[in-house]
Write a protein that binds this DNA or RNA. Structure first.
Lengths: 170, 170
DNA sequence: CGTCACGTTGAACATTCTCAACCCGAGTGG
DNA sequence: CCACTCGGGTTGAGAATGTTCAACGTGACG
């Protein structure tokens, strides 16, 4: 339902619930920082500004999930794939993770297919289709966008949806 | 992506963002209460307990959205329909809204199909299938569950997923 | 009585899945 | 060094699932 990249945080507030309703996995070696419950409680209670910022972050995450739902419900599989690739590419670029011309994406087709709600076999064919169309190719853990415009057009990607802005402090 | 019932709240915190990334509609006449931004800010800042509770509510909503994503990605359409009906039924019952033996569900097939990510035509056929199977029937805005067990079984419904609990105050 | 929104149905088609096979490169034990 | 295995990736063929388009029914409402 989501892919995290270096610097992303997740589940900052699970401490409030009795149990997790989902799980998180690393798919590469990773350094993971944790914040214990007491610390989070303290931050929330004593730093109103930070608390507010965390609320906002939460809302933005929710927006991303809504986008994901739309993707699943309304987009054909090839659009879904293209869209996710656009998103991952932009996010990676925003944190300086793209080593032009390609981006390291250590995702097995199995994983991707699952995330996108389709069969590995079908994903494979879709990737092939995108490759043949000359839009992008994903091979040996590396994403190469050969024709950005075409990819964006297939995906119906709107760059703006990643940039949810905050209301200026009143 | 969600259906609200009497007493449900939504978007308590949109005040934090510069713009909405989604919309809300009434599908029946409804009384809607609004809380203005200043009041919400004040509550968040001065009532830590309430703020915490609202965080939790937010997390629970998020869980619901995750469930929705799972539904879209992994369930066949008949399962999706059955699952949503189970959920709506239980939620309605929890707030005393079920007038046995049936539940008023003022949802057009158009609306439902859109929410479930399928064609109105196909939804219609799925509903017919469920009716013929004797599990439930949805007609003239009223949901009648004729064989709860069968419906639950078709849906693969786990009653527990609605009852996310909070961590007891430490 | 006409209109309009919604529901229902059929038939052809497109999309996606299933199952099964095969390929390949990286590790592993003999 | 070689055969083996194993986790991906790729491909084909047939079947299931879902869509499209177009028609018709039906009740509410002016």
């Amino acid at each position: 339902m989501a892919f995290l990249m270096p610097g992303d945080s997740c589940d900052l507030h699970v401490g409030l619930l009795a149990e997790m309703d989902h799980s998180i996995q690393t798919i590469t070696p990773a350094s993971v920082a944790t914040i214990d419950r007491e610390a989070m409680d303290a931050i929330r209670d004593t730093h109103r500004g930070v608390a507010k910022a965390m609320y906002s972050a939460q809302l933005i995450d929710e927006g991303a999930m809504r986008a994901w739902i739309t993707s699943m419900g309304r987009r054909a599989s090839i659009e879904r794939v293209a869209h996710l690739m656009c998103e991952l590419y932009l996010r990676a670029r925003n944190i300086g993770l793209v080593s032009e011309p390609s981006l390291a994406l250590p995702l097995s087709q199995l994983l991707l297919a699952d995330a996108l709600g389709m069969t590995p076999v079908h994903l494979n064919r879709v990737l092939k289709e995108l490759r043949i169309a000359g839009a992008m190719s994903l091979q040996r853990g590396s994403l190469l966008i050969t024709d950005p415009e075409k990819l964006v057009q297939i995906a119906g990607f709107d760059e703006n949806y990643l940039h949810r802005r905050l209301r200026r402090a009143s």
